[in-house]
Design a protein around this nucleic acid. Structure first.
Length: 593
RNA sequence: AGCGGGGUAGGGUAGCCUGGUAGCCCGCGGGGCUCAUAACCCCGAGGUCGGUGGUUCAAAUCCACCCCCCGCUACCA
């Protein structure tokens, strides 16, 4: 049984609204498994969520971090058809591969589930049936494009043709990309099925709709009153909601999915968005059920007004999280906690362009690991997190971050201090006696910077937090230059001891601070410092300001990081090519294209 | 087209809500140090804060219009 850990409401726990009971559900958007996530996907959702979840745990909060594979819907069905395999075979392979990726990337999921999980399928049917019984679902007939050749209804985007307004040949059934006009597929001149090129016909089909207008007032009230929502989320969603929430179809004529639970809806499946959004709850249900044996344990989390839920997503799916999900929760009549925070990132660009699978632009998460270990990437991506605007990933910047920040600032600081202790003090952290003014000041300044990092993390300003981590290393380096403990060792051994004791305490602060960003590196540093247990178990409020105890014998001291070679930027194209080749070999058959 | 976000030195960013002569990191130029992964530290140059107009004693900050980038617009997920 999971026990509610009380967050110690200390002077340091500045988390707004914490109230001393820290129970958090951290979620990230569910990756759609028609392909492997790229670096932009990763920092937008899963990696940001992981850093935040790790941070919360390090502050002593109780955390459930869940996500999963989103595996239903038309694109998966088509992808599977193209490969000549059943959809489930495709999603099994990708899901398994993604799970392996998360392990390698050090993602600390409490549960990484999937939409094919029995718990999820059952939950979605139960939830949607409840909406139906409560009168939020109605049925309506529609005429929709149907491809007689592929024997399937086509989503608007899968119909292409000539725009009736500007004559653009590649207009899609929902919008013309050339003139920007919104279209209906019937308007297209010479419409074609974008899968096979055949001309679609129109057939009558019945669909089930959720009437969101019934909860519009509650959704608006929530949007207006939730002070934790960032501008990009609130303003955009308010605009949407104020225009009036339209009924939205929740069923599809697709075989691959969760059967709709409504009377008369045999053969229909639930539209993947409604399916995937409920995964946040079902994945919690699944893990709590497993841990406690109680299939209803999830209610204690989701129906408790003190539980805080935070969603990490890219800007493209703000409305689904800030409008549709809360609307569904409200419509259910159950007391679900509405989103506490929604952190929506802008986009990561790759050398000035959008990541594109078809055009092979960008780096995918398995390819990245063939170039450097996950921790380097985790740090670099956190540094580039697109918090305020689209941010450009460049290899030049990546090179700078790895060589200058990680190696020169952080790694080298640690190495300077530890090698002095190792060589000149037999590897034992000295007893400082009474701390001189210089050392007092160092401890105080680095402590302030460290807690500024914590404050930034509270506010989900992950990039800003990394700035403060670097500040700690810079303060340390400046101190060493000014204090020159290597000279003190000859001139004033007592002060030299105080100096190295204090410098070691700063290295320990770095270990704590690196823990959410670079979990393995932080652990390595922890053991280099000769400390017991795990850095991930050391709650900041209690341990961050504590020094390495005098008398501690250092572990093996070696450089924390390795530099990228000086010719890295010249050779980057061949390095990428090699990484792609190696990654491709490891991919499951369904993903080798 | 509408709506939302953004446009601050060569690059990356803070400040904008609550107006008061622009802060930080990298890069660049100069100097210092030698414990350390040729690493580190200090000093300096570089910006009329996308444009125009307005409000004000005072505008990066407030208002109006315009330009550019990104996203969304409800059946892509």
């Amino acid at each position: 049984m999971l026990k509610g850990i009380r967050c110690k409401p200390s002077a340091w726990c500045g988390l707004r609204g914490c109230g001393g009971l820290g129970r958090f559900i951290v979620t990230s958007a569910w990756p759609y498994v028609n392909t492997i996530p790229h670096l932009g996907n990763l920092i937008g959702s899963i990696l940001s969520a992981d850093i935040y979840a790790r941070y919360l745990r390090l502050r002593g909060h109780e955390v459930l971090f869940v996500s999963g594979s989103d595996e239903h819907g038309t694109p998966i069905e088509l992808e599977a058809r193209k490969k000549g395999i059943p959809p489930r075979m495709l999603t099994d392979q990708v899901h398994e591969y993604d799970v392996k990726m998360w392990r390698e990337w050090g993602i600390s999921f409490d549960n990484y589930s999937r939409t094919e999980s029995p718990v999820h399928r059952e939950f979605v049917r139960w939830f949607m049936k409840k909406l139906y019984e409560r009168g939020y679902i109605f049925e309506q007939e529609e005429k929709l494009p149907y491809c007689p050749n592929d024997k399937m209804f086509l989503p608007d985007r899968f119909v292409t043709g000539k725009c009736p307004y500007c004559g653009f040949e590649g207009a899609r059934g929902d919008q013309c990309d050339e003139c920007g006009r919104l279209l209906h597929p019937t308007e297209l001149i010479d419409p074609k099925c974008s899968i096979c090129g055949a001309r679609p016909i129109y057939m009558v089909t019945k669909h089930w709709f959720i009437d969101l207008s019934k909860v519009q007032r509650e959704v608006l009230e929530w949007l207006e009153s939730n002070r934790e929502l960032p501008d990009n989320v609130r303003n955009y969603s308010l605009q949407w909601a104020r225009q009036g929430l339209k009924p939205r179809s929740v069923t599809r004529d697709v075989e691959w999915g969760i059967p709709a639970p409504f009377p008369g809806a045999e053969g229909k499946t639930i539209y993947v968005w409604f399916d995937a959004l409920l995964g946040y709850v079902s994945a919690t249900k699944e893990i709590l059920q497993e841990k406690t044996g109680d299939p209803e344990a999830w209610r204690k989390w989701w129906f408790d007004p003190e539980t805080k839920t935070i969603y990490f997503i890219g800007k493209d799916n703000i409305p689904f999280h800030a409008i549709i999900l809360p609307a569904m929760f409200i419509a259910s009549g159950d007391p679900y906690v509405l989103p506490w925070r929604i952190s929506a990132t802008e986009y990561l660009m790759y050398e000035g362009q959008q990541f594109s699978k078809s055009r092979r632009i960008g780096i995918w998460i398995d390819e990245a690991l063939e170039i450097l270990p996950a921790d380097y990437w985790r740090w670099a991506l956190a540094r580039m997190r697109p918090e305020a605007r689209d941010t450009n990933f460049t290899w030049k910047e990546f090179y700078r971050i790895v060589n200058s920040e990680l190696n020169d600032d952080i790694g080298n600081y640690v190495h300077r201090v530890l090698s002095l202790i190792k060589r000149r003090l037999d590897g034992v952290v000295p007893n400082p006696g009474r701390l001189p003014e210089e050392e007092e000041r160092l401890i105080e300044e680095t402590g302030k910077a460290a807690w500024r990092a914590a404050e930034a993390l509270d506010e989900v300003k992950i990039k800003q937090a990394t700035e403060h981590v670097l500040e700690v290393a810079r303060l340390g380096n400046r101190y060493l230059n000014e204090r020159q403990p290597w000279a003190l060792l000859k001139e004033n051994p007592e002060e030299a001891k105080a100096s190295l004791y204090a410098a070691a305490a700063v290295a320990k602060k770095l270990a704590h601070l690196l823990a959410p960003f670079m979990p393995r590196t932080a652990e390595t540093l922890w053991s280099m410092l000769g400390l017991e247990g795990s850095v991930h178990q050391a709650v900041w409020d209690e341990h961050l300001d504590k020094p390495v105890p005098p008398g501690t014998r250092l572990g093996e001291v070696k450089p924390l990081f390795t530099k990228l070679p000086p010719d890295f930027l010249d050779r980057v194209d061949e390095i990428i090519e090699e990484a792609r080749r190696r990654a491709l070999e490891k991919r499951p058959p369904a993903l080798r294209d």
